[in-house]
Design a protein around this nucleic acid. Structure first.
Length: 500
RNA sequence: GCCCUCAUCGUCUAGAGGCCCAGGACGGAGCCCUCUCAAGGCUCAAACCGGGGUUCGAAUCCCCGUGGGGGCACCA
């Protein structure tokens, strides 16, 4: 199917309202926009839907930009970077909307409404009590134009409402769902300009999308109920509609409804978050975030699941989008994070681990860290685990619990003897390499009639002071001969305290 | 309550009439590897919401139920 729009280049936009931190759902919407733009050589625009001064959060814009950039979703046009349709904050475009609202009034598609909130509330309650759908029922819709204009002229408080047809129906097209028909009688005379003179989303977004030449609108499914209003506005102006794509919603892990503020807070306690900004501090990679959310609502085929941003740009397609809602699965997020950590070059992993080590006051130097990374890369799920995997490498000394130096099924005396022998063998080693150490110590295990795990576990606790660590011999090689031997001797003295 | 929408393993999904006694992934169970923990490999358990149609043939199309989700503001 072809339309005139096919010949135009793609122009998409992400237009959140600055009411809080950017979350999973917003990030996915932004990403799909970005992918389509990049894939087609089109433009990705970042606009701010800030017409609601009551919910405005002054920190939200910065978070938005930081989060998007961290994810690697740089916009081509919009706030900060500018473009041919400035300004990109709706609050700064107030004057732009006015003539359009006027046009709707003049053409009979909208009317001035002077009803007070109290009157509206009463009316709504009364309708509800009668068991009917609450809709605008005031007298303003039928006011003669001259009367209305006169009241506006004397400065009477008013809003502007869209004059919804009383009968008939409207059929609109969603790219993923096909035709959707609404009976106009089920629709309301929605407010499109507030008493403060600012348009509400319904008018502002439509005007901006049209003015900015938006070709595809990706937005959440929660917009479907007001979708017919938007189409009515487009048609009242005689504009060509964009391609509408309503995305599935992200549901809480239980699958029971959208994430609530309360649950979002509770989630923090378990180290989970839906906010992009917080993911970085938790040790997640932007690559993993993108991969994870890309697959919640979209798929490429029946088996590919690892995608980089470039892969996604190449492979994304609207037709493979899935209209059904998806429950958030944080375990899958961890899985993808591990996958992406392992896909990174060691230098890259090291660089990204550094902030976490600094925060933990671990005096790691890049050279040593680079030698450690290959040992821990496949063991890490999140970057914030770096301190616990590497701390012992950078300590002057370690103090293992004496009991931890008694090997499984051995007495303290036997452990002491084994440790003493192992230390002696290592001292005598001509070259300090993990292969030489392993060969020599395996022979000792044989000689002493022990199990590898018994001796090696003992050495692990002696050198790292922790029961779980990177591979023993590779670790000792990095620690170096002096440090390793020193720790073994120290362990020996600690063990002596356990002898009596 | 009204309007809209969705419906395949616990979860994310593949499937656009026969390739499906339904494939992949996460998670789970087991085995292998193994100096711990991982990673990796192999195996197993696990789903087409129900009922009617249409068709030689339906997970796939249609209808009705049911269930889930969303919306019903001078918020987006």
């Amino acid at each position: 199917m072809s339309s005139p729009r096919d010949s135009q280049s793609v122009r998409v936009r992400f237009a959140p309202s600055p009411t809080g931190l950017l979350h999973l759902g917003g990030a996915r919407t932004a990403m799909y926009n970005y992918l389509l733009a990049r894939q087609t050589g089109g433009q990705f625009i970042l606009r701010l839907e800030d017409t609601d001064q009551k919910r405005f959060d002054p920190t939200a814009e910065q978070d938005l930009k930081d989060s998007l950039r961290w994810l690697g979703l740089q916009w081509d046009e919009g706030i900060d970077v500018g473009g041919p349709h400035e300004p990109y904050r709706q609050s700064e475009r107030k004057a732009i909307y006015q003539p359009f609202a006027q046009q709707l009034i003049d053409s009979g598609h909208a009317f001035y409404c002077f009803c007070t909130r109290e009157e509206l509330d009463t009316s709504r309650q009364e309708q509800k009590a009668r068991g009917v759908q609450a809709r605008y029922a005031g007298p303003c819709r039928e006011l003669p134009a001259e009367t209305a204009h006169a009241r506006v002229a004397v400065g009477e408080d008013h809003v502007i409402r869209f004059k919804m047809p009383k009968d008939g129906s409207i059929t609109i097209v969603d790219r993923l769902r096909g035709d959707i028909t609404f009976e106009n009688r089920n629709l309301d005379d929605y407010v499109i300009v507030k008493s403060d003179g600012l348009p509400v989303y319904h008018l502002a977004a439509m005007v901006d999308d049209h003015l900015m030449g938006i070709t595809h609108v990706f937005r959440g499914e929660e917009w479907i109920p007001t979708f017919p209003l938007h189409a009515h506005i487009y048609r009242a102006f005689g504009w060509q509609e964009p391609e509408w794509v309503h995305l599935s919603l992200f549901l809480k892990p239980s699958g029971k409804g959208k994430m609530s503020k309360r649950e979002t807070e509770a989630m923090r306690l378990t180290g989970q978050t839906i906010f992009i900004k917080e993911m970085q501090g938790l040790g997640y990679l932007p690559e993993a975030v993108l991969n994870w959310i890309a697959l919640m609502g979209w798929s490429y085929d029946d088996s590919t699941e690892f995608f980089t941003l470039d892969d996604l740009i190449q492979k994304f397609s609207i037709d493979k989008l899935n209209p059904s809602n998806a429950a958030i699965d944080f375990r899958k997020f961890d899985h993808f994070n591990g996958l992406h950590i392992r896909a990174l070059a060691p230098e890259d992993v090291a660089r990204r681990c550094m902030p976490f080590l600094e925060q933990a006051s671990i005096p790691a130097d890049m050279d040593t860290l680079l030698r450690i990374i290959p040992l821990i890369r496949e063991r890490m799920v999140t970057l914030d685990e770096a301190p616990e995997w590497t701390a012992f490498f950078f300590k002057d000394s370690v103090d293992p619990a004496p009991e931890s130096l008694i090997a499984k099924d051995l007495t303290a005396a036997q452990s002491h003897a084994a440790l003493q022998r192992a230390t002696a063998e290592l001292e005598a080693l001509p070259e300090w390499t993990h292969t030489a150490m392993e060969t020599r110590l395996r022979a000792l295990v044989e000689e002493l009639g022990l199990k590898a795990g018994q001796l090696f576990g003992l050495l692990r606790n002696a050198t790292a002071a922790q029961p779980v660590s990177p591979p023993l011999f590779e670790s000792m090689e990095i620690l170096g001969r002096d440090v390793s031997l020193g720790r073994l001797r120290h362990a020996l003295t600690l063990l002596e305290s356990q002898l009596q």
